[in-house]
Nucleic acid binder design. Structure first.
Lengths: 109, 109
DNA sequence: CCCATAGATCGATAGATGTCAATGTATCGG
DNA sequence: CCGATACATTGACATCTATCGATCTATGGG
């Protein structure tokens, strides 16, 4: 139990001193969140109609080039914060609420 | 109301698309959190005896040089996550729970 | 088949970031 | 006063990061 991987993420910051490994892991997820473009992408997907958004509808509102948006989306997926499903020519993204909750909990008292 | 400054930080990521300014502001706080050394410092202060910790007791456990630790502590203070009180030769740090909660809430559904 | 479209990948680059050694600045003990 | 102590500041440097234009890959329409 207490697998150091996808779901629980890290012990809460306020519940005792983190060791270097725990801190590195939590910092990694936070680093992915700590970028304006990625926060906007996350919020766009989160507030999309059917809970999912097509990449094609994200480039313009986020105000970055297509390659840049693609790159950021990949980072969010790799961090477990989004899932990507390719349907035909389009890529559809959904948020992973549990992952976001895990990060939130790591910041809890 | 809804002063864009210290306390509320930002609208929740999942409650509609963030504009660039909101995203930049939230990203700024997250950037400060997204570093292993700073997370460890935060956790050390949070779990300190009387709710406060002396800088002199933080250098060794965090495994960085004294100037580096001082630098990180300054960033945490500037981000509103810690307060610094200088007493005599020593600097005492406390966490600002409301600030941490504000960041947490910005990540909430 | 051929071409258009969606999106991923590559290569390059300017700027930000974490780190330390050296130095500066206060504060205390004697 | 003087030296020691606790932090902060400065300067330098190697590394990481966000961004873009160009290109590659795959899918679908006619």
């Amino acid at each position: 139990m207490d697998v150091v991987s996808v779901d629980p993420c890290c012990p809460p910051v306020t519940a005792g001193a983190l060791d270097e490994d725990e801190a590195v892991e939590l910092a990694a997820v936070l680093k992915v969140l700590a970028d304006p473009a990625r926060l906007r992408l996350l919020s766009l997907v989160a507030s999309a109609d059917a809970g999912e958004a097509c990449a094609c509808d994200l480039v313009e509102p986020v105000g970055r080039s297509q390659p840049t948006v693609s790159h950021h989306l990949s980072m969010l997926v790799e961090a477990g914060l989004l899932t990507r499903e390719k349907r035909g020519r389009w890529a559809w993204y959904r948020v992973v609420p549990e992952r976001l909750a895990a990060v939130r909990d790591a910041l809890a008292p």
